[in-house]
Amino acid sequence: MDQENVSATLTVAVPAAKMFAVLADPTAHPAIDGTGWVREAVDRAPLSEVGQVFRMDMYHPNHPDGDYRMANKVQVLDAPHAIGWLPGQENGDGHLEFGGWIWRYDLAPLGPSETEVTLTYDWSAVPQAIREHFQFPPFGPDHLTNSLRHLAELASGR
């Protein structure tokens, strides 16, 4: 694959501020994800600033332990237009290490009660040493669209 990012876009009948609030709530992420990999927010405070770290309990059948924890660092926070984070992990001494991929949501208001949401997964900064062990993207082609549908359902119900 020559491209090092994938994205999907969905128009949702929800105001951008409401969509952003759902995305800034780590406790909503398991419902948005849809793969079953994102299990529970460890850090439950809303995302409020660039540099903020929020941890999520995760599960993946191919992970050596099955259960593991990701430490995500907020990279983009421009309410209600964009939010994104770098997934990483804490090493043994508590230092954060990031793999080079980012999740980013861009929200474009289409009036007072409708938003175009674009979800992008970008792995262009992943070092070769990591690429030798993992396939990118690590999910099927429908994952981003399904995730946006879950986000829309969740935001519509709030």
Score class of each variant (00 low, 15 high):
143 H>C: 02
75 Q>H: 14
62 N>K: 15
140 G>P: 05
149 R>D: 13
4 E>G: 03
101 W>I: 00
20 F>K: 00
151 L>N: 09
122 D>W: 09
102 I>E: 14
85 W>C: 01
120 T>M: 01
81 H>E: 02
69 R>H: 04
96 L>K: 00
61 P>N: 09
137 P>F: 04
76 V>W: 15
46 P>D: 13
101 W>G: 03
74 V>L: 01
110 L>E: 11
13 A>M: 10
110 L>W: 07
105 Y>C: 00
98 F>A: 11
116 E>H: 00
13 A>T: 06
26 P>A: 07
110 L>I: 02
21 A>D: 10
125 A>C: 08
121 Y>P: 04
38 V>I: 10
149 R>T: 13
103 W>F: 12
97 E>Y: 14
80 P>Q: 04
54 F>C: 00
43 D>W: 10
48 S>Q: 15
15 P>T: 05
83 I>D: 08
104 R>W: 01
153 E>W: 08
77 L>V: 02
97 E>I: 13
65 D>W: 12
134 F>Y: 13
128 Q>D: 14
14 V>K: 00
104 R>K: 12
89 Q>V: 14
26 P>R: 00
27 T>P: 11
96 L>H: 14
22 V>C: 05
6 V>H: 07
132 E>K: 13
93 D>N: 15
8 A>G: 04
5 N>P: 03
21 A>Q: 03
23 L>W: 02
64 P>E: 05
58 M>E: 06
113 S>Y: 08
58 M>C: 06
133 H>K: 15
6 V>A: 03
45 A>I: 04
102 I>L: 15
156 S>H: 11
36 G>V: 01
27 T>R: 13
49 E>M: 04
51 G>H: 02
87 P>F: 02
16 A>W: 05
141 P>H: 11
80 P>S: 02
119 L>P: 07
42 V>S: 05
21 A>H: 10
41 A>N: 10
44 R>K: 15
74 V>A: 05
103 W>H: 13
57 D>M: 08
102 I>P: 06
52 Q>H: 06
125 A>D: 12
42 V>W: 09
57 D>K: 12
65 D>L: 12
144 L>E: 06
72 N>T: 09
47 L>I: 07
45 A>V: 05
156 S>N: 11
83 I>C: 05
13 A>C: 08
70 M>K: 11
30 P>F: 10
134 F>L: 11
96 L>M: 11
143 H>E: 02
49 E>F: 09
156 S>C: 09
97 E>D: 14
7 S>D: 08
127 P>Y: 02
108 A>Y: 01
41 A>S: 07
124 S>G: 07
113 S>W: 06
27 T>D: 15
63 H>N: 07
58 M>L: 03
78 D>L: 11
70 M>E: 15
49 E>Q: 15
105 Y>D: 03
12 V>E: 08
68 Y>G: 01
69 R>F: 02
20 F>S: 06
130 I>L: 14
22 V>F: 05
116 E>L: 05
14 V>C: 09
11 T>P: 11
